[in-house]
Nucleic acid binder design. Sequence first.
DNA 1: CCTTTAAGCGGACCTCGGTCCGTTTTGTTG
DNA 2: CAACAAAACGGACCGAGGTCCGCTTAAAGG
Lengths: 200, 200
Amino acid sequence: MELTAPDDAPLRADAARNRARLLEAAARLVEEQGVARLTMEGVACAAAVGKGTVFRRFGDRTGLLMALLDHTEQRFQTAFISGPAPLGPGASPVERLHAFGCHALRQTSEQLDLYLAAEPEATRRFTSAPYRVRFMHVCMLLRQTGSGTVTDTELVAQTLMGYLDPALIGHLTRQRGVSPERLETGWCDLVDRSVGPRPA
Amino acid sequence: MELTAPDDAPLRADAARNRARLLEAAARLVEEQGVARLTMEGVACAAAVGKGTVFRRFGDRTGLLMALLDHTEQRFQTAFISGPAPLGPGASPVERLHAFGCHALRQTSEQLDLYLAAEPEATRRFTSAPYRVRFMHVCMLLRQTGSGTVTDTELVAQTLMGYLDPALIGHLTRQRGVSPERLETGWCDLVDRSVGPRPA
DNA sequence: CCTTTAAGCGGACCTCGGTCCGTTTTGTTG
DNA sequence: CAACAAAACGGACCGAGGTCCGCTTAAAGG
């Protein structure tokens, strides 16, 4: 597989070409008929490639969909790791957390169907590479708040991450009609309560 | 379907009998070879019933697994709705929230594999009957804290519920080696922060 | 350029969840 | 008890994800 254990070894020429064609074909099919109708065989066919090749390259359907989101995710990552404040370094940890969540909320909302479809099975949700990068970042910011009030960084970080779960965002915005603004306010509130002093 | 829209109309005699046989067979198969190896055809066969019957009765695989958890879930529900304090009425809302989460954490841990397998697809996670009952209860308790400090009950309740997600519990306890005590402490902390005064 | 070999390829094949529809059973009504 | 409608049944059938393995081909070394 790829996203879970990024191969440092470069792909063979034909493999690289096929990979590109597959991603292109998949993106086109998703745009044309929605991610729900995307089948692995369909992608293989549209890319004029064998079905086995798709699985060899992306592991499974989820892997393919995550690959489609890879570009977006990479940009987000570099933005919050080394980009300009308040997302990147320069702002206070709390401000960065606010910005982080709001950006994630917007990004997820924009490509909600894809993020929903790319959600791995329950067991793997927390081990995908993009999740772990986000998670580690939140942990780091929580630690940087310095106020020794966050007793258990890992648990708090997971709680925060839970708020950004695409499934939850989709449910709240689509089924429950929660506005994006309300979602962002809720996020900032959650962050403030998480890093603030522990109430009596 | 059944758990999502409980049929008030009583089942026909043969249907009720088959339902019981199916649940019995499914429970036995799960105990014998684990939930991962449970196939719908296998259950049908073990219950000496047609495959279509399984789907007619339980809708899909998730429905069958949820039905297996129904008994446990029902007892939990009556416990926190009308049982003795601190889970049931009689204790303060915050105490009840503490008890609620700790009970849920324990219950989920005890039958983790089943809860994991019964987790519906992303889109349906928040609309299953058991989830909604739990969610409404948390909402009610949050409102009862009376302190007008919980600005957005629904969002806070969803955050709390996210902490109790079987997938998260499984990840923390199995992959990350987090102890049950630590999980429970984390829950109580989260509750306290959620209902406490909003920090400056 | 030839050999070699490991990565890549392709598509037949398998499994399993889910659907469909002709047949059977239940229980109600006259 | 006979007739009838509604509910239930069962298993053939379908689609899609995922596997397997014999064949092909890129690219490194002589």
